[in-house]
């Protein structure tokens, strides 16, 4: 555990809490992609099945349980409690185009051909693209509420901090996982365009609006 990793995890947690609070306080999930949230729930479920088999640390176990609980909580708020506010007309990204290639790739490129390892690998590949329905939704409507952009910024920061964590671990000559690193870099790149807009617009008090 190093400072980048810890800040990355906290940033991830912050993103999830921002999203839950936004939905809860406004009693609305307008502008949020239920499809991305559904993909994140699949990601956590596939990856954290190791809760039953391996123990790494109390921190690790608690965070996994929190991520699982909050991701299902978000789905509950979006698809049941505040379903009437869900903007499904703009949430049209075909998630099978993400899930099926992630399954295929996990079966082809993995470190060990076991059920638990392939599920882990699948979750890594799927996480790297799970935000696409949300970014697609923002690009389709051409704008995002500030709170939605704060959510995306916290989520992107988590990925960027994980890269710093790997660089740090590299110099500590710790073991690193190539699959996680490649997928993590891909995932971070997806946020670059958004980061640019966030830094140049949202932080200056403007609404995130895409150039026409």
């Amino acid at each position: 555990m190093n400072i980048f990793r810890l800040l990355g995890d906290l940033s991830h947690l912050l993103a999830i809490i921002i999203l839950l609070l936004k939905i809860w306080n406004s009693r609305s999930c307008a502008g949020i992609s239920g499809r991305s949230q559904f993909l994140f729930a699949i990601v956590f479920t596939a990856r954290y099945l190791d809760l039953f088999f391996t123990f790494i640390s109390l921190y690790n176990t608690v965070m996994k349980i929190v991520f699982l609980a909050t991701s299902y909580g978000t789905l509950y708020l979006m698809y049941i409690k505040f379903k009437a506010t869900y903007d499904s007309n703009h949430d049209t990204f075909r998630i099978e185009f993400l899930i099926l290639p992630a399954i295929a790739l996990a079966l082809l490129i993995n470190e060990e051909f076991t059920v638990i390892e392939i599920l882990w690998t699948f979750s890594i590949y799927l996480e790297s693209v799970a935000i696409l329905p949300q970014l697609f939704m923002v690009s389709k409507t051409g704008e995002a509420e500030s709170i939605t952009s704060h959510y995306l910024f916290a989520l992107g920061s988590y990925r960027a901090l994980y890269i710093l964590n790997w660089i740090y671990r590299w110099f500590l000559t710790e073991k690193l996982n190539a699959i996680a690193i490649v997928a993590g870099i891909v995932q971070t790149i997806l946020y670059c365009d958004f980061f640019y807009l966030y830094l140049t617009k949202v932080l200056k008090g403007k609404k995130l609006q895409l150039p026409a």
Binding site: R5, R47, T54, F67, N165, T173, K175, L176, N177, A178
Partner: peptide
Amino acid sequence: RLKSTTHDEL
């Protein structure tokens, strides 16, 4: 160094 790690990250 780039393989066979325990999955210690979230």
